[in-house]
Amino acid sequence: MTGAADTVKSFIARALKIDESAVHESLQLGAIPQWDSFGHINLMMALEAEYGVPITEQTVLQHVSYAAIAASLAALKR
């Protein structure tokens, strides 16, 4: 696993308060009980707090999967 993937996994696990082993690349909103409406709110808050991604309707709708969050974090690093 790459460092970048580690970062994404760790970030999602912390925000959703789940074990990193439960985070995989096909994980998305609604796939697990912790990533429900409120879990998603927490995830967006963490995204803003840790990476400065502002919470807007677009970002809330955009970051609904592991892949989308990974893509955003990768873009931020470039």
């Binding site: 409406s37 967006m44 677009q58 809330v60």
Partner: peptide, 11 residues
Amino acid sequence: FKQRTVFQAAF
């Protein structure tokens, strides 16, 4: 306020 209003609007 913030997280809930955005969530309501987004979905």
